[in-house]
C-alpha cells in the first residue's frame, strides 16, 4: 500500500528515529528495515531517505559517522542523539494519542492500537 506523501512526511522521521533507537544503522539497512518491518508500507527510496537523514542530522536528532564494517568497507552509520531520544519519546506519545483518537472515531481498529506509553513503556 502506498502512503500519501503528507502522511509519509509525518511518519518517516519518527520511523527512522525509532529504528535508530534500537542501535546504529547505515542507509541501506534503514531502507531494508523500514520496508521489512512495515510490510512495505513505509518503504522509501534513497531519494527520500538520505535527505531525511540529513535533515534529522541538521536538527541534531541523529549523528552520522563513518566506520569500517566487518567486510572491511567503510559505511556511514547513523545513531540517535540525546535530543533525538527525547524527540522520539515525545513523538511516540503524540502518535499514540493520535492513534487512540482515530480508534475512537473508528478509523483504526482499537484492538490493534497499543496502550498509552505510560502503560506500556513505548520505548522498551
Amino acid at each position: 500500500m502506498r502512503i500519501e506523501r503528507e502522511l509519509m512526511r509525518g511518519a518517516g522521521p519518527v520511523a527512522v528515529l525509532k529504528l535508530l533507537h534500537r542501535g546504529e544503522m547505515y542507509g541501506y539497512q534503514l531502507v531494508e528495515a523500514l520496508s521489512r518491518r512495515s510490510d512495505g508500507v513505509l518503504a522509501m527510496g534513497q531519494s527520500t531517505l538520505y535527505p531525511l537523514l540529513y535533515s534529522l542530522e541538521a536538527k541534531g536528532l541523529i549523528e552520522g559517522f563513518w566506520r569500517e564494517a566487518d567486510s572491511g568497507r567503510h559505511r556511514k552509520y547513523y545513531r540517535l542523539t540525546d535530543r533525538g531520544r527525547k524527540r522520539l519519546a515525545a513523538d511516540i506519545k503524540q502518535w499514540q494519542a493520535l492513534a487512540g483518537a482515530m480508534a475512537g472515531l473508528g478509523v483504526l481498529d482499537p484492538a490493534r492500537v497499543a496502550p498509552l506509553p505510560s502503560q506500556s513503556g513505548a520505548l522498551a
Binding site: 531502507v31 534513497q46 531519494s47 527520500t48 538520505y50 535527505p51 540529513y54
Partner: peptide
C-alpha cells in the same frame, strides 16, 4: 529503480545538506 526521481532527490539533498 528503487532510488526514486533523481531531480527530486538532488533538490532534497541540496536543501538538507545545506542545513549541515
Amino acid at each position: 529503480a528503487s532510488f526514486g526521481d533523481t531531480r527530486h532527490a538532488a533538490r532534497l539533498i541540496t536543501a538538507t545538506r545545506k542545513r549541515l
